[in-house]
Design a protein around this nucleic acid. Sequence first.
DNA 1: CCGGTTGTTCAGCG
DNA 2: GCGCTGAACAACCG
Length: 242
Amino acid sequence: MPEGPSIVILREEVQSFKGKKIISVSGNSKIDYEQLQNKTIIDFKSWGKHFLVCCKGITLRVHFMLFGSYRINEKKEAPARLSLQFKNGEINFYACSIKIFTEDPNEIYDWSADVMSDTWNASKAKKKLKEVPDTLVADALLDQHIFSGVGNIIKNEVLWRIKVHPKTKVGELPTKKLNELIKEARNYSFDFLKWKKAYVLKKHWCIHTKKVCPRCNIPADKEYVGKTNRRTFFCDNCQVLY
DNA sequence: CCGGTTGTTCAGCG
DNA sequence: GCGCTGAACAACCG
């Protein structure tokens, strides 16, 4: 569920509730449900892995973490963390983190840091990367302030595609590779979106969870890399350590 | 049936 | 105040 493109899919799936009034709210989250009662949805937004339900003066933030899920116009067996009821249907969220805030989302979020956004700004990402030369590329890709929406799968696939070893430091990357990293973070995310929608995402994984590098036909490597210490799949043969 | 994970925050410690 | 570690959360797949 959690990487950025999946949240874009969710946003598209709830469009029928845009402009609709929340006629009842419930769930096992710790938020104050009264605040949302009878509010009208102005817009659904997303910033990376954050899903936002925007109403006048109040915004609901849903983060699915590792295990979160949702159902539209149906329920799971498990109790909902949050359930939003409308005249024309319902949205149910499970096992996710829910927060409410009253600030203007435009003041809180830098939309241009979201790799899925129309306003994604590659130059800003490059500037941020220049500020962290000692960070491993594997960690940099997971930094939500630089590449909001990128998750572990995208990280592994991007580095394989551009033939860069996950333990390369950002500052050691040749300019050409740095540019490729930024470009491919967005590009692969859109491939992820396309494949996820068609239910063929896994089929297209080249290195993530793979035991063999499809380019070299030799055993792939699996290590827990960097400060993020996340599962990293790579090919020691074709992914260059700069 | 247990182990592992598409993620993040926070407490505790040195 | 800092970085680092581990816990907590809690669902589903293989």
